[in-house]
């Protein structure tokens, strides 16, 4: 578990260096980035609100990553999940029915899985690389969302803004307190983390997935089917991302607009790696990543720095994490000149 901590510390160091180069007081900026956002109840609520989808998606993705199934398109699966959930919320005949929220939940999950089933089928049956297919489908999902909110689903009473009508109260998760945005959807993430732990540490299927990833030949010899790992991995990621999309629509968003995610689907990939592909680590990784998002927004508002800093920090964090692994798995040794 040392590598993630080392990587975080190094990222902070490079971050303060970067701030200094840009002409900001490093300590004050670091404080504005990482500490001030958590100084209030609202800050803590936002922290968990953003960590929730990251952790949820990372759990789903980690299932696949364990078996070397590279679902890079969680962002697209999130968008499709949000689309399906919002569609149910908008067009279900009785907008006040208690059934609405559960229906939207299943719509989001199934839609996310369906979107991920395309690369799963193509990889398992057609031998097609899932990295590229999941990514291409993300671009397509973004365009589909854009078309719906500019066209057929645009709110007629919305002053021509590209957005759908607001969802009814029955289609939304109850916030814990109406002063803050944190809502009951975090319980879904808690359940997902528990399921993830069960899957990786207590299930035979999880074991088979790990073997497929770590030693593909051994897995084949033992009779574990590769296609099963592909389907399980992609569908788990798709379901998690679809549910996360639903929770966004039924939570902080309340409607669809052309841009519904600040890149949760991509950031969750990093979260899964920082978390070492296990449930407990992913929770910590998600909290850290959420803080990066919050900090990026905070320094943008308070110091006029660009929120793109968040993505720079994400990249640096992953760089350092990967490099730190090297020093953990290998020991450097001086070789005498004439060995």
């Amino acid at each position: 578990m040392a590598a993630p901590v080392i990587a975080t510390v190094l990222t902070l160091l490079v971050g303060s260096l970067l701030f200094a180069v840009l002409g900001y007081d490093p300590l004050a900026t670091l404080q504005a980035f990482f500490i001030t956002p958590l100084n209030s109840l609202n800050g803590l609520s936002e922290w968990l609100l953003k960590a929730s989808p990251l952790i949820l998606i990372a759990c789903g993705l980690a299932v696949g990553f364990r078996a070397n199934v590279w679902n890079i398109g969680a962002e697209g699966q999130l968008i499709i999940g949000a689309l399906a959930a919002c569609g149910v919320g908008l067009f279900y005949p009785n907008p006040d029915s208690w059934l609405l929220l559960p229906l939207m939940f299943f719509a989001g999950a199934i839609a996310g899985m369906a979107w991920a089933a395309i690369p799963a089928f193509l990889r398992a049956r057609m031998n097609t690389n899932e990295i590229l297919v999941t990514l291409m489908l993300t671009y397509i999902a973004t365009l589909l969302l854009s078309w719906l909110v500019h066209g057929p689903w645009r709110d007629p009473a919305g002053f021509n803004y590209p957005q759908t009508a607001l969802l009814s109260a029955a289609a939304m998760f109850e916030p814990f307190d109406y002063a803050y945005r944190l809502n009951a959807s975090v319980f879904i993430t808690v359940v997902a983390v528990f399921l993830m732990w069960l899957f990786t540490d207590r299930s035979f299927l999880g074991y088979k997935m790990s073997v497929s990833g770590a030693a593909p030949l051994a897995a084949r010899y033992a009779g574990f089917r590769e296609s099963a790992a592909v389907w399980t991995g992609l569908l788990a990621g798709g379901a998690a991302a679809g549910i996360a999309g639903m929770a966004e629509v039924s939570g902080p968003l309340g409607q669809l607009s052309p841009q519904i995610s600040p890149g949760y689907g991509f950031a969750a990939i990093i979260v899964a790696f920082i978390g070492r592909l296990n449930a407990f680590g992913i929770v910590l990784g998600g909290l850290l990543m959420s803080l990066l998002f919050l900090g990026g927004e905070a320094v943008q508002m308070n110091l006029g720095l660009s929120a793109a800093l968040t993505r720079i920090f994400q990249g640096i964090l992953l760089f350092f994490l990967l490099a730190a692994d090297f020093f953990i798995f290998y020991r450097l040794r001086r070789i005498p000149e004439h060995a």
Binding site: W70, A308, F313, G315, I316, F319
Partner: peptide, 14 residues
């Protein structure tokens, strides 16, 4: 794979 992804995210941020 992971190193390339990190570069993709980093480059888009920078």
């Amino acid at each position: 794979y992971a190193a390339g992804l990190a570069l993709a995210i980093f480059g888009s941020g920078v």
